[in-house]
Design a protein around this nucleic acid. Structure first.
Length: 256
DNA sequence: ATGCCACGTTAGACGTGA
């Protein structure tokens, strides 16, 4: 089964690309981020007509996450993370999908550094890690899929120098990601491509796509039981080159 | 050092992204 993480950068603007993707690739599960849509304007019927059940956690203008499942309805387990009752951002959604636990994650960007947005990112990351530890304790097949807004290693970015001061590759961001992995999660794409050099995002600006100036920030983490079923992982890079594309490409893992 | 480009909101720029 193919499980996808796709930051669509606005589901209204990206709906033609998303429907194409569903029709052409027939992924089994799709975790979406950056819906930029309130709950009321989520295109439920279009997605249902494409053969997918959906669960979404929207927000007006920015953030927003969803989980799509081909031929079934995801069963909600949790929306939002615990640990901060004042957090109003829609960045986390967790569901049971045909026996698999799946989370769609949109971790805060955190720029500029330093500042309150970076503090929020690190705090949110700690809350995610607490949730992840709870999920591991269930000893089930779990996939944590999303835009983590973290470049894990120097070989996950086109230019270390160009991004050195960015929140995506600050030591604190990387350490939080490493602490998450150290709980026992498997980074699918890293497992498939241990030498790095694989990008999931290319900026709209400065001809980044044409220069292949990208980096890897969309990750699918597997619990030990899910990792036992690991088959393959990759990036459907061609979708980044289409008309009216998102700045992220669909990133996927295949479980046997 | 800053803007580049794109989206959403909402009718002129501005907030946000990364």
């Amino acid at each position: 089964m193919k499980i996808v993480s796709y930051n669509v950068n606005g589901i209204k603007a990206r709906l033609p690309r998303l429907l194409e993707y569903l029709a052409e690739e027939s992924p089994d599960i799709v975790c979406l981020q950056e819906l930029k849509s309130s709950d009321e304007t989520f295109p439920e019927q279009d997605i249902r007509d494409a053969g997918y059940g959906a669960l979404w956690h929207g927000q007006k203008a920015f953030n927003g996450v969803a989980i799509l499942s081909r031929g079934s309805d995801p069963v909600e387990r949790q929306r939002g993370l615990g640990g901060d009752p004042d957090d109003t951002h829609s960045r986390y959604l967790e569901a049971d999908v045909d026996g698999l636990i799946v989370a769609s994650i949109y971790l805060p960007n955190g720029n500029p550094v330093p500042g309150p947005k970076f503090d929020y990112k690190l705090n949110w990351f700690e809350r995610l890690n607490e949730r992840a530890a709870t999920l591991l304790a269930e000893e089930r097949e779990v996939v944590l899929a999303g835009d983590y807004n973290v470049i894990p290693n120097d070989d996950d970015v086109f230019s270390v120098k160009a991004m050195a001061s960015d929140a995506l590759m600050q030591p604190e961001s990387r350490q939080a990601y490493r602490r998450l992995l150290a709980q026992g999660w498997t980074d699918s794409l890293r497992t498939r491509f241990p030498a790095g050099g694989i990008w999931t995002f290319w900026d709209y600006q400065a001809g980044a796509w044409q220069r292949d100036a990208g980096f890897r920030i969309d990750h699918l983490l597997l619990s030990p039981m899910a990792a036992d079923r690991f088959g393959d992982a990759g990036v459907d890079k061609a979708y980044r080159g289409r008309e009216k594309a998102s700045d992220h490409a669909p990133t996927w893992v295949r479980l046997r």
